[in-house]
Measured scan of single mutants.
Amino acid sequence: MKVIFLKDVKGKGKKGEIKNVADGYARNFLFKQGLAIEATPANLKELE
């Protein structure tokens, strides 16, 4: 799953980066902790 990092995550990505991560990792950790959001077309447009 592609995500947009909202904060730096050690060993995974830095704020503003778009990366592929495991679905479970994204849903169970990154999204719940507010560290990333899903890289949907709408979210990508907001990032620009």
Rank of each mutant, 00 (worst) to 15 (best):
G24A: 14
R27F: 12
P41V: 12
T40S: 09
V21W: 03
K2F: 14
G16L: 04
K10L: 12
F31G: 01
L44E: 05
N20V: 15
K14V: 09
L35W: 10
L35H: 04
A26F: 14
K10D: 12
K45F: 12
E48S: 11
N20F: 15
I4H: 02
Y25V: 07
E38V: 07
I18E: 03
K7D: 06
T40Y: 05
Y25D: 07
E46M: 13
K32S: 10
G16A: 02
D8R: 05
L6P: 00
N20G: 08
Q33W: 15
G11E: 05
K19H: 08
V21D: 01
A42Q: 13
L44R: 07
G11S: 07
K32D: 09
K12H: 15
G24M: 11
D8N: 12
K12L: 15
G34I: 03
E17R: 02
K10Y: 12
A22E: 13
L35M: 07
K2R: 13
V21M: 09
K19G: 07
K14S: 10
K10G: 08
K19W: 08
A39L: 07
V3D: 01
A22W: 10
A36K: 00
R27P: 03
P41N: 09
L44V: 11
F29T: 09
E38N: 03
K2I: 14
A22I: 09
I4F: 08
G11W: 08
K2L: 15
V9A: 03
G24L: 12
A36I: 08
R27H: 10
L35R: 02
I4S: 01
G24H: 13
K7H: 12
K15S: 06
G34V: 03
A36E: 00
F5H: 01
G13S: 04
G11M: 04
A36H: 00
K19N: 04
K15A: 12
D23P: 15
L30P: 01
I4Q: 03
F31N: 02
D23V: 15
N28H: 13
F5R: 00
G11T: 04
D8A: 06
K2W: 15
I37R: 06
L47R: 08
N28M: 10
K10T: 13
K12T: 11
A22R: 12
A22H: 15
V21G: 00
I18H: 03
A36P: 00
F29Q: 08
K7R: 13
L30V: 01
K19T: 08
V21H: 01
A36L: 01
F5D: 00
G11P: 04
K14D: 05
F31V: 08
A26G: 05
K15E: 06
Q33L: 15
I37D: 02
L44M: 11
E17L: 03
V3N: 00
G16N: 07
I18Y: 03
A26E: 12
F29R: 06
K10M: 11
N43S: 09
E46H: 13
A36T: 00
R27E: 09
F29I: 13
F31T: 03
G34H: 10
K10I: 13
I37P: 00
Q33K: 14
L35Q: 04
V3W: 01
L47Y: 15
L47S: 08
N43F: 09
M1S: 05
A26K: 03
T40G: 04
K7F: 12
F29H: 11
G34Q: 08
F29S: 07
K10V: 12
N28Q: 10
K2Q: 12
V9I: 08
A26H: 04
F29N: 06
M1E: 03
L35A: 05
K10H: 12
G24Q: 13
N43M: 11
E48R: 07
N20A: 11
N28T: 08
K12G: 14
G13K: 01
I37T: 06
Q33V: 10
Y25Q: 06
E17M: 06
Y25S: 05
K19A: 10
